[in-house]
């Protein structure tokens, strides 16, 4: 299966939170299991400096509410051999931060990430040609919308699966309806069934509705966000309506960094077969923190 992952972060080069760790690790894990996997991400300066990409094809453009946003596509491979398609629009992504700087969000994030999602869908349709698009969080939600609703793209993506994964439900990409034309969609999509949300536009809601499958990062959390209004952030009803098309898949742990048998940051390595060194680690930490060594028996002897 050919999979195109669409996300605003990719570790270790463009990282704000846990999303970057996922996008850093998941493509390689999918590829190791035989899936042909690529990643579509914005061309941040940190990425282009590290990976030295080449331009793919001519300049392209996305029409956004009357303005033509033109961009290039850059191609590169990660050291692990995963192909990257980078959306190069310097005015939007050639900045020091991903979502903001100095503790302040950029004021045009809605415009930036609508552009990114739409450009990503077009790049998938023309260049990556995947069987499935796997979009992550609200910054990639417009890719799902374009696949299913944008006239110039949807016919070519009919047989491509759209999958949306929620990492952080607290951020949904909500904006005023006068900016709806940025999406390049017919106004009929601004309905309570799809994109309308309390008089505003909600990108994550639209992606949840239009995706073939929606996932979040654990099975229990998937149930909780669909049934507990406090955790559903207003989308519990929409999520509940997905039925068995809403699933939960746990993220993986980074066992390269976190493995007591290979960990160079701990006093002595240990493993299931050589557990005694764990007691040594405990003794050292107690000394470091000036905590007393209790007299009661310790199982690690």
């Amino acid at each position: 299966m050919r999979i195109a992952i669409v996300a605003a972060e990719i570790g270790p080069w463009a990282k704000v939170g846990g999303l970057a760790d996922v996008i850093g690790a998941l493509p390689r894990a999918l590829a190791n299991r035989g899936a042909e996997t690529c990643v579509i991400a914005p061309a941040y300066p940190a990425l282009t400096a590290a990976l030295k990409p080449n331009q793919l094809g001519d300049f392209r453009s996305v029409e956004m509410g009357g303005a033509n946003e033109s961009y290039r596509v850059l191609g590169a491979n990660t050291p692990a051999g995963i192909p990257l398609f980078l959306i190069d629009h310097p005015e939007m992504f050639g900045r020091a931060g991903i979502y903001g700087e100095n503790g302040r969000e950029y004021g045009d994030n809605v415009r930036r990430f609508i552009f990114f999602g739409r450009a990503a869908a077009a790049v998938a349709a023309d260049l990556a040609r995947p069987d499935l698009i796997h979009a992550h969080d609200w910054h990639a939600a417009a890719a799902v919308l374009a696949m299913r609703a944008e006239r110039a793209i949807r016919d070519r993506m009919k047989s491509t699966l759209a999958v949306f994964t929620i990492h952080n439900l607290a951020f949904q990409g909500i904006f005023e309806s006068h900016d709806f034309p940025l999406l390049g969609l017919d106004w009929s999509w601004y309905s309570v069934e799809v994109l309308e949300f309390w008089g505003r536009v909600n990108l994550m809601k639209g992606a949840i509705v239009l995706a073939d499958g929606v996932s979040t990062v654990s099975p229990t959390y998937a149930w909780e966000i669909a049934h507990d209004p406090e955790l559903g952030f207003g989308l519990d009803g929409v999520l509940r309506a997905k039925g068995d098309r809403l699933t939960g898949i746990l993220n993986g742990a980074d066992y390269d960094e976190w493995d007591p048998a290979r960990d160079r940051l701990i006093p002595k390595p240990y493993s299931p077969r050589r557990r005694a060194n764990k007691k040594y680690c405990l003794d050292v930490l107690r000394d470091d923190l000036r905590l007393p060594h209790p007299a009661n028996p310790q199982p690690y002897r």
Partner: peptide, 17 residues
């Protein structure tokens, strides 16, 4: 591990397909 997670994603993708 990530290998386990990737296996679950692929299983789910196949089911959706």
């Amino acid at each position: 591990s990530w290998d386990r997670a990737a296996g679950q994603y692929l299983q789910w993708f196949e089911r959706l397909r």
